[in-house]
Design a protein around this nucleic acid. Structure first.
Lengths: 196, 196
DNA sequence: TATAAAACCAAGCGATCGCTTGCTTTAGGA
DNA sequence: TCCTAAAGCAAGCGATCGCTTGGTTTTATA
């Protein structure tokens, strides 16, 4: 997917593509895709509605771009958090904390990945699913290193953790427990390494 | 909340309010609230768009009615599943299975409760939140009976389980594992009753 | 400084949205 | 059987939707 109208020389300094992307990430994260209009997006960056289509061919493509950046940021945050940590369970806990911080304190981009359903992108839904799968594969690698009894247990733990973490946005209140506290409580509920 | 136009005598036999409610549950569950138009809803029950407003004052009120029925069905399913089961952990597992079956195999009403965000209902969002809280209180009671070390652990387990269960709809494939298998795997990952 | 592309404006297109109004058909209680 | 209310039709309102088109301004490069 090339940057919209295939610039044949360097983009200008006053290019507001990123500002537009930021506004879209915020609106999509807070109000959802369908509830956000292109006129609202344009107004948020001080632009006329039609000007959006210089940067993106459609509203759906704008969502894909936000989604892509969101996955990229979560991946980076998790990779950084895990780097240097040795013990497998500690690595998973660090990854969970980074994942949750990206969703809650982090940018709106990450929230879009969790909130917006891929089918909202219309015919581009496969792209969003592929992006999400790519990230989950990274997460699955960390869990495989735990050496659980079998592959089914690894898969179940991945789905349990990611599900619980992604759902936090529905009940999280900023004043209360910090992400790392929440994650630590969750990890404390798990049976680590026992074969029952 | 009285049945829309306050009928002063019994409703007629050919009343299609329920058919309309069913159609709304299906569309809201599969495509989301904003992506569903009143014309589509009317077409699904062989009715003209304007006729919807004889039964419901607004599209949002239609969502509230579906949501209310959804919560009611999940509550009933969980209460039935738990009835007769004695052991606290077995009761929680039975409740989780009933919850998941209601979301996956069950009616579309239950799926709406998990999929649609309360804020989509506009000014009626508080009603949806109250309904969701009412159900979670029922679930919390089952977890309190586990006699976990402290209240924080109980709360964490409730949020962990409900989050993981509600997220299942994003990766569930009907041919694969049945709900009770998924729940059993999740429960197998937990440290039951240990104080670490 | 001339020029070509980048970036955006101005205006509006056709389609669809939730919803209203006025009228007609139908069923149930007396 | 008659009458009233329930239920729905027919038609369209104003608003908003995503998006297009043609022209204008601005910046970087040569």
């Amino acid at each position: 997917m090339p940057p919209a109208p295939v610039p044949e020389r360097a983009p200008r300094q006053d290019n507001r593509r990123n500002a537009l992307l930021d506004a879209a990430a915020n609106q999509f994260a807070e109000r959802g895709f369908h509830a956000t209009s292109t006129r609202e997006l344009a107004a948020a960056v001080g632009m006329l509605p039609g000007s959006i289509y210089y940067h993106f061919p459609s509203k759906s493509d704008l969502l894909v771009a936000v989604y892509d950046e969101g996955v990229r940021r979560i991946e980076t945050a998790v990779a950084q958090a895990v780097d240097g940590v040795e013990a497998p369970w500690a690595r998973v806990e660090a990854a969970c904390t980074a994942h949750l911080e990206a969703l809650l304190d982090g940018s709106a981009y990450a929230r879009v990945v969790v909130r917006v359903q891929p089918e909202d992108a219309g015919e581009s839904d496969a792209e969003l699913i592929a992006l999400r799968d790519r990230y989950e594969a990274l997460f699955a690698g960390l869990i495989d290193d735990l050496d659980l009894p079998d592959a089914e247990a690894s898969r179940a733990l991945r789905l349990l953790l990611l599900g619980a973490l992604n759902w936090v946005q529905h009940w999280y209140r900023p004043g209360r427990d910090a992400p790392h506290v929440i994650v630590h409580r969750f990890m404390g509920l798990l049976a680590r390494g026992k074969t029952p």
